[in-house]
Design a protein around this nucleic acid. Structure first.
Ligand SMILES: [Mn+2]
Ligand SMILES: [Mn+2]
Ligand SMILES: [Mn+2]
Ligand SMILES: [Mn+2]
Lengths: 221, 221
DNA sequence: AATATTTTTTAGGACTACCTAAATTATATG
DNA sequence: CATATAATTTAGGTAGTCCTAAAAAATATT
């Protein structure tokens, strides 16, 4: 109950593995983890053995890794903190949505259940972070929205932007410059041969590349 | 400019040494530091050599240590963060003043100048933290108040409580229970043979031990 | 199926921050 | 001032996390 404390590094591995599990089918590979946490594969092998020892994940040599219940719950706690802090930074400290990730990477490792709960209340128990990602509740439950990637939306459908897939600074600032935000209404006018899409954004015609269309989450109106 | 990054442990040593310099006359001793940071003296010897190498302090074997300008400035940054976060926790998240220190011990190590500045603004640029300690400004300047320890106040003088010397939980909760807070008006009625003092607190007679009187900072009205 | 390539692990270190025990220097006491 | 005591440093080690290079296993290609 309650008192499991992981090191900053352990938390980063657990979070990375959690995110990777949602991207690949089976177990998560050593190389994938090493990409995500920016260490060498041999370091990953070291660390997954430590994490397996702590029952945070199941590790089979050469076969990869998957989180246990305990590991998933630890991941959710970190992700909850990350997204709450990002929300705080944007809602209360007036940061832009492209500025908050790195700071939240630090804040997510602060250990205090009381702090997280009070922060949550202070923010009005938000359901989504500034990038449209859902914020787990105190029990680690995620409410998932049936969002779709913009590039999968057929012609003439009207949707609203609800999030971004990869929230890199460059991409977020691109959206800012075009006044595309969470909540922005988008009508799909048509698709071009190169995957780019012709849209009506804020009632003005606008085209986006395949890459941009593939990074925007939208929801039917 | 700006980009000096110290490890969490280094920051704790620098902060400890800064606080000790304000308590003792000459250089700060190895043993004093080891008490403050809760490591063994031999570990302190290791670390002060590292910090001396980084020009954060001057170390003379067997003679102790004192911070350089660079070291003092690093200390002020950490203290500024600590006290701003404590203020945030009390003012915005409704923590009690005895609950915030340990959380601030973690938050003070978050590295982001933008975050600190915005937090400062969000809090309305407070001058004092919940324990009455002054908050350094962004340049590291401390405005010091001419506060006195309650036990040094002569009979019949009326003062207000402006802070506490040692802000341990037990002491703070003792004050809470007696409705003594920052801003509370105190009249000194007399002193007893054992160092205890008879007071008028919130217009009601109240006696405090020598220890309590020696831990309360007050200011003439 | 044999071989080439890629992935993963192992072996052996490095670095930070800590520790214990022993040696050294400083200080206090008779 | 000589000696006992206290403070400090040195020597040698540990734990956590990372690394490079080499070995082993898995996978892909012919
Ligand atoms: Mn983020
Ligand atoms: Mn986010
Ligand atoms: Mn404090
Ligand atoms: Mn304080």
């Amino acid at each position: 109950m309650g008192g499991l404390i992981l090191s900053l590094v352990e938390e980063n591995y657990i979070k990375a593995i959690y995110h990777l599990e949602n991207e690949v089918k089976g177990d998560v590979s050593t190389n994938a983890i090493s990409d995500e946490v920016k260490t060498k594969p041999s370091s990953v092998t070291d660390m997954v053995q430590v994490l397996a020892e702590k029952d945070l994940l199941i590790y089979k040599k050469y076969k990869g890794v998957h989180l246990t219940k305990k590991g998933k719950s630890a991941a959710m706690k970190v992700i909850r903190k990350h997204r709450l802090w990002e929300t705080f930074l944007v809602e209360k400290l007036n940061f832009q949505w492209d500025e908050v990730h790195d700071i939240a990477e630090q804040l997510e490792h602060i250990h205090s259940d009381a702090l997280v709960d009070r922060l949550d209340d202070f923010l009005g128990n938000p359901e989504y972070d500034p990038h449209g990602d859902p914020i787990p509740d105190a029990e680690g439950n995620l409410k998932s929205r049936n969002k779709k990637v913009l590039s999968h939306i057929p012609e003439n459908e009207v949707v609203i932007c609800v999030g971004v897939k990869e929230s890199g600074s460059d991409f977020l600032r691109y959206l800012d410059k075009r006044n595309i935000n969470i909540g922005t209404e988008i009508k799909v006018l048509g698709k071009e041969f190169d995957g780019s899409m012709d849209l009506l954004v804020n009632s003005k015609p606008f085209s986006v590349s395949e890459q941009v269309a593939g990074n925007l989450y939208v929801q039917p109106i």
